[in-house]
Write a protein that binds this DNA or RNA. Sequence first.
DNA 1: TTGAGTGCAAAGCTTTTGCAGTTTC
DNA 2: GAAACTGCAAAAGCTTTGCACTCAA
Lengths: 145, 145
Amino acid sequence: MKHNKEFLKRIFETIELSSLRMTQKRERILESLLALDRPVSASALRDLAGLPETDLVTVYRTLEAFEGIGIIQKIPLEEMGCLYELTETNDHYHHFVCRECHRTERLDLCLEDELGARAEKLGFTEVSHLMEVYGVCGECKPETD
Amino acid sequence: MKHNKEFLKRIFETIELSSLRMTQKRERILESLLALDRPVSASALRDLAGLPETDLVTVYRTLEAFEGIGIIQKIPLEEMGCLYELTETNDHYHHFVCRECHRTERLDLCLEDELGARAEKLGFTEVSHLMEVYGVCGECKPETD
DNA sequence: TTGAGTGCAAAGCTTTTGCAGTTTC
DNA sequence: GAAACTGCAAAAGCTTTGCACTCAA
């Protein structure tokens, strides 16, 4: 699912309205995220952006900055680390994630309202939620049959 | 929700059937998990078990061993680390987790079948899933109104 | 020119690993 | 007595922090 114009427009608007500065590195990172259109790890993103010399710290800070303005979503892996994905401003997605290669498929389902309502009933505020499905994808699955 | 006899029976059966050895430390850890009946961190568990002198490595290895026989579930926190909880053999729960104090409430809802079916349709095998709700609980919520 | 971004080095944290010594069954 | 458990020390791994320097607007 490639990004449509509306999506791009909102991303750029959000950045404009923020106090973030668009450096070359950030442009490359943003471009890669846009082109990729799926979650990646910080270090994979550095490579994909063609910035192998750039310190990972910079990538992390960029992702943190983007997350701060609501255009990046963090997806935890089962074992360790996480993936980062460009999202509609302050929206989010859920995924099927391959344990082996970290390939993801978007999950077209979100229980936000349901969970939010239940959480509030229990006295929770500032509610967010996590829902990810892990498995071994077709390409990683050993042919043992 | 305190554990019923059936639950206890299954836990002990599972341990008996395993190759695990029941040492004093493990007994204390298991007792604490049973008494507590909610998720805790490894280090909190060590304290609750009255084993402040015991190396955390031992707690982690015990949890790992228990997880291996399917009686422990790991619940990831939003930021870092995770909580551990005794569960019905190879069953699992979802939770509302307080970001501040890590207090949890069990969420009586699981999309296992739905998600499993969708995952398989996408070619994923050995599917598991994560669903946790994070927020600030009533006790931790600042009285700003 | 001033606040923001970057690099380097180092720390932070939970969790894991290796190995030698100890204990359980 | 063999297999499992424990402790100590150290590593692992991703992510964060501090500080000085550079750069974008």
